[in-house]
């Protein structure tokens, strides 16, 4: 598995798209710092970008890579290699190379700017970790979609839809249901609904670390407990890990049964 991981990773790292992705983050980081002159504000702006863009790119890249390397995969399948290690290796290869582009691309400008001596260090680290998690989650989801759809166009369509749903529609439905049931106690519901969407989850996780968390705690005792203490950060982190593990397990299961 490690060997396959290494091959896909190198393969991707040599590809043009990784560089474009890397260059994009490099530029974003530089421009943000240049315009903002304030690390903590730059971190907030970055958060807005990361929670929207990282899932999108993760999904598209995951689907694309699966379809592009299908022939190579079939070739590998003819060899005496375990199926799970082929697919998991490829998945991890994509996800890790994307994460690398993200972390290095954003890390470099901030490192030059002096993030290490700044108070925003922990927030920035959290931002990168969340970004990495989002990449892992959405690449895994994309791989699941690609594995279950032979048709490329359909696969891409579902992948885009998945992103659109998680990033925009979900929040819309969430908000509508909050308003529709406003007479009921909603704090537990809204926390659970947040946990159920990795994009919302990472947004809340970053907000928790920022000062804004006090705004959230304004609402009631359950929020107060969740947002006011470390409890919230611990729970959200655990949920993020679960969000990585579950789709990965599905890749493993699907890959075992799939016909080629």
């Amino acid at each position: 598995m490690l060997k396959i991981l290494k091959y896909s990773c190198y393969d991707l790292l040599r590809s043009r798209w990784s560089y474009v992705y890397f260059a994009f983050y490099l530029m974003l980081g530089t421009v943000l710092l240049f315009l903002n002159n304030d690390l903590s504000k730059a971190v907030i702006t970055l958060m807005n970008v990361i929670i929207v863009l990282v899932p999108l790119i993760g999904t598209i890249f995951g689907v694309m890579y699966y379809y592009n390397s299908k022939e190579f995969t079939e070739l590998l399948l003819a060899q005496p290699v375990k199926r799970s290690s082929i697919f998991l290796g490829q998945y991890l290869g994509v996800a890790l190379s994307l994460t690398l582009s993200l972390v290095v691309g954003l890390g470099l400008p901030f490192a030059f700017y002096g993030i290490f001596n700044s108070a925003a260090m922990s927030e920035f680290t959290l931002l990168l970790v969340t970004g990495a998690f989002l990449t892992l989650i959405f690449t895994a989801l994309a791989y699941n979609i690609a594995l279950s759809n032979e048709n490329k166009i359909k696969g891409f369509g579902y992948a885009i839809l998945l992103w659109l749903f998680m990033a925009v529609i979900y929040d819309g439905v969430f908000l509508m249901s909050l308003i529709a049931f406003e007479e009921y106690p909603l704090d537990k519901f809204s926390l659970i609904a947040t946990m159920a969407n990795p994009i919302d989850l990472s947004r809340v996780l970053i907000l928790l670390k920022l000062d804004i968390s006090a705004l959230l705690g304004y609402t009631g005792a359950v929020f107060q407990k969740f947002f006011g203490t470390n409890f919230g950060i611990v729970i959200s982190s655990i949920m993020l890990v679960i969000w990585v593990l579950v789709p990965t397990y599905f890749i493993y299961r699907k890959a075992k049964k799939k016909d080629f």
């Binding site: 929040d171 907000l207 304004y218 929020f223």
Partner: peptide
């Protein structure tokens, strides 16, 4: 308020 700073 939990949707603060969401794209939607």
């Amino acid at each position: 308020i939990i949707l603060l700073r969401s794209l939607f």
